[in-house]
Nucleic acid binder design. Structure first.
Lengths: 229, 229
DNA sequence: AAATGGTCGTTTGTCGACAGTAGACAGTCC
DNA sequence: GGACTGTCTACTGTCGACAAACGACCATTT
């Protein structure tokens, strides 16, 4: 965000609600606030050292992002994730990425591919040093970059709704390490298909990629959709 | 929203912010609040007879829906619609509808097609009696129904962001009457393709449909993207 | 015993008041 | 004269307090 050569870093002057929002969102997608957990306004306000007003304004956004659920006069809880939620999440994610890739291919800008290759190199590096956290971070960056390179603000906005909850899902399960370098190498054919302008192949590959990611999650998702008898 | 055979209609017990939200949203998508128009909190609160708190909470949602733009300490204005916005709007809309139709075809439920045919009949009826407003309403319902029949909550949520602003766009231009019955008949081949399970054809048709709708708007969009010199 | 009705405590919903900020305007120094 | 600086104002941001609504519990009635 900040320009890199600035002698003095910019003072964070964002409204409180924005900082509260970021804080809560991070806690939710990181899994610190568990699904189903009620968010009491008084308690949270005291904990964050703010009044209820900015907190409530942050809740509005979170609710619209689908991270929490608010019932009038009943309160706000972290949204639960059912198996169906996950199916929907990944299926829409796939649609978004396919659309983004189509646009990238149509734009046909060599710099785009170069950027993706850069990310891949970084991911490979992290994988070889066994840094799982870093691999995950770059993996996320890779897919976020796909969306950004599509240069479609509205898509970008819609994407944020999906990617936030995907992060939440990944945080809530114990990610098996799998083979790190294998994860990294999975991205190569996608980049190559984009580079070659082979739309059909890119569509197929990204779908495979997302579906396999989904399957990893879904099969080990323990909580049932309908816990009521 | 309300069930139709209820002897007593439900008393509106929604929180103020929700009613404020609906009111503002309707005013914006109907074009009563013009793009660029500043929304002064005090003024609007007085006008609606509420305090600023629920109004501000409504602003949060509207901002997240892309209908207004809020700058910290500067205020909130109705979001302007540039040509690029419209391009993005319709391109994403197309992606959403294609995805919805793929799911409808996959579900292969005859009742879905029946419902769509029903809507078509109603549209045709309205078109023949020259009721432009009604045709537009049913046209909207038709496309909303496509999304709903996909039975994909997340898609439905993302769709609302798109459809709201499409309504705004349509409200802001003076819709040429064109040939009403022609508009209605445009939907027939789409329904037939769904019925036949011909995915490729349905994809093509809905794209044509959306693109032609977009072209009608874009070509007569007068305001430039960058009015600043 | 089941169902109805009332009370109470907790939590959210709303309000009015105060503090803070950005931009506009005018004044001052070079 | 030009540019910087100080003030002023209208608006947003935040707060604490009060009102309203819900759910749980208990008393009452049939």
């Amino acid at each position: 965000m900040s320009s890199k050569a600035a002698p003095l870093s910019q003072i964070d002057n964002k409204p409180l609600r924005a900082r509260v929002l970021d804080s809560l969102r991070e806690a939710i997608v990181a899994g610190d606030l568990k699904p189903g957990q009620p968010l009491l306004e008084n308690e949270l306000a005291a904990q964050l050292g703010v009044s209820r007003a900015p907190l409530r304004e942050a809740f509005q956004i979170l609710s619209h992002e689908g991270l929490v659920e608010t019932v009038a006069y009943r309160g706000t809880v972290v949204r639960k994730l059912t198996k169906q939620d996950i199916e929907e999440l990944y299926s829409l994610r796939c649609v978004f990425e396919q659309f983004a890739i189509r646009r990238i291919i149509a734009a046909n800008n060599p710099l785009d591919v170069a950027l993706l290759r850069e990310l891949f190199d970084a991911m490979l590096l992290a994988a070889e040093s066994g840094d799982l956290k870093q691999v995950n971070l770059i993996d996320r960056q890779f897919h976020d970059t796909l969306i950004e390179l599509s240069r479609h603000q509205l898509l970008h906005q819609a994407w944020s709704m999906v990617t936030l909850r995907v992060r939440q899902v990944m945080a809530l399960r114990n990610r098996r390490n799998s083979v790190l370098t294998q994860i990294a190498y999975n991205h190569v054919p996608i980049i190559e298909a984009i580079e070659a302008g082979d739309e059909a192949r890119a569509m197929f590959l990204i779908q495979e990629h997302v579906v396999s990611a989904r399957d990893l999650i879904v099969e080990m998702w323990d909580n049932g959709d309908e816990p009521t008898p």
